[in-house]
Amino acid sequence: MNSFFKYFSEIFHGVKSLLTGMKVTGRYFFSPGEIVTQQYPENRKTLKMYDRFKGEVIMPHNERNEHRCTGCGICETSCPNGSIEILQAKIDMPDGKKKRIIDKHIYHLSMCTFCGLCIKSCPSDALAWGQEFEHAVFDRAKLTKILNKPGSSIIKDIVE
């Protein structure tokens, strides 16, 4: 008799647990307001990334096309993957001395792991995170970027 009772209580508890589960899915079925899915390409206009978002490494330039990079190469050595290459140039200063400046700050986006060590280690705060995240391109070469814009120069007040 005891096992007979157990048989039915098993069925009862089983069915009850199944109905509990069905209640959850049923509730979501009838409350489509809880859907949190974003419609990505459509919401591109309104999509706002967080201000600390790590999209890519950029070099901010001011309105006079000046940046803060001295070409010291600390970012190059601190990068674990070799995604940064610094090409330096020498210019003649008015006082006859030669000074090293940045020629090209080459950034390989394809190799970057977004660890942030270049930005953290930069002594003159020349690098920053960009918010751009749509990096898909058809040509791999497009992922190699030159961060200092053509014709740009260093902001005057930066001392090495």
């Binding site: 049923g26 979501y28 859907i35 899915t37």
Partner: peptide, 8 residues
Amino acid sequence: CAFMQNRV
């Protein structure tokens, strides 16, 4: 199934 799974 999408509505039950809270998606579109």
